[in-house]
């Protein structure tokens, strides 16, 4: 070993052990941090599910309630109605906005600005959307506390997620393929319907699932837009408050009665389970597709084709058919 520099000075190498010790310390701390996070995750799931499972009953799941009495059915239905309403308002502008962003190659700085606005919209605090919803939707546009007002408030929040994820799915499609299609004389509509949408549909779907999972867990937007309906289901689209699960959790745990606490835990359990399932499906669409096929056999293939695998099935057909057509 040439353990000296050119002038004959000895080089003192750092002791291996001290650097190794630091490396090992980092490894241990890393595992501890990971373990700490996972332990908390387990604790959250365990407490919520334990509390919910201990109190849940068929009766509670199938009757309407007002957070201190009755059941949570109006919460379950209301949550999905609101999320559905939010999706209704955000899906079309989200997907079409993404198509525009993808295809507006020539107006790059305009598209960049739009993208920035979209990103920034995700960072608007939920209660600010809630206050806006109250002041503008509920009062100014006179929608009252209602499904439409609550759905719009949720839609504002879902829109940027759907748009960005859709755009990202488009971008993951190979550029050559798109260029190829243009080169073969396809126009924007052709490219969109034959290449972009079919190939990106898996990504779009997982984006939608993610947006739904986030929307289902929101509260602050809804407090003063959907308000709360203790009687049952809303009687109409406007001027009729809606019940939702997150309200059961928040309001229930703040009440003194043990029954209200139970309803809070049950609602939280339903929320956390549905949200987790949605997130896992959206992140593991590939695995879920395979599992479905394996477990359910032929039935799984059908379900698979409809919900999960549809994109790649279409993708193959779409492109090969499309290309053949263009080549003629």
């Amino acid at each position: 070993m040439i353990n000296s520099d050119m002038h004959g000075n000895e080089i003192k190498w750092k002791r291996r052990s001290s650097r190794k010790a630091r490396d090992i310390a980092a490894r241990i701390l890393g595992y501890l941090a990971l373990g700490f996070m996972l332990a908390i995750l387990v604790s959250i799931f365990a407490y919520i599910i334990k509390g919910g499972a201990a109190a849940v009953s068929w009766n509670i799941l199938t009757t309407y309630g007002n957070t201190s009495d009755g059941g949570v059915l109006n919460g379950i239905i209301g949550t999905w109605e609101l999320v559905g309403m939010g999706l209704l308002f955000s899906l079309i502008p989200g997907v079409f906005g993404a198509i525009y962003l993808t295809q507006s190659v020539s107006r790059k700085h305009v598209a960049d600005a739009m993208r920035l606005f979209t990103d920034v919209l995700t960072s608007v605090p939920s209660i600010v959307i809630g206050l806006f919803g109250y002041l503008v939707l509920v009062i100014k546009f006179n929608l009252g506390y209602s499904l439409v007002a609550g759905g719009l408030a949720l839609g504002i929040m879902m829109l940027p997620y759907i748009m960005r994820i859709t755009e990202m799915s488009f971008r993951n499609i190979q550029r050559e393929q798109v260029m190829n299609a243009y080169a073969l004389g396809a126009d924007n509509v052709n490219v969109t319907t034959r290449i972009l949408l079919p190939q990106a549909s898996a990504g779009i779907l997982s984006g939608i699932l993610l947006a739904i999972s986030i929307a289902a867990g929101e509260t602050a937007q809804l407090l003063y837009t959907a308000s709360f309906n203790s009687a049952g289901l809303p009687s109409g689209l406007t001027h009729s408050p809606v019940g939702y699960l997150t309200y059961f959790v928040w309001n229930g745990i703040n009440q003194p009665s043990a029954y209200a606490h139970n309803l809070a835990f049950i609602s939280a359990m339903i929320l956390i389970i549905s949200v987790t399932v949605l997130i896992l499906i959206s992140k593991y669409e590939d695995v879920v597709g395979r599992l479905l096929r394996r477990i359910l056999g032929p039935l799984g293939v059908i379900i698979n084709r409809v919900f999960v695998e549809a994109p790649s099935e279409k993708e193959d057909k779409g492109t090969s058919k499309g290309e053949k057509k263009w080549k003629k």
Partner: peptide, 20 residues
């Protein structure tokens, strides 16, 4: 994915866990 699950847990559920 597990770590990212934290981002999906509804904030009222965090609140509930925080309280109890």
């Amino acid at each position: 994915s597990l770590i990212e699950l934290f981002a999906g847990i509804p904030s009222v559920v965090y609140g509930l866990w925080g309280i109890v």
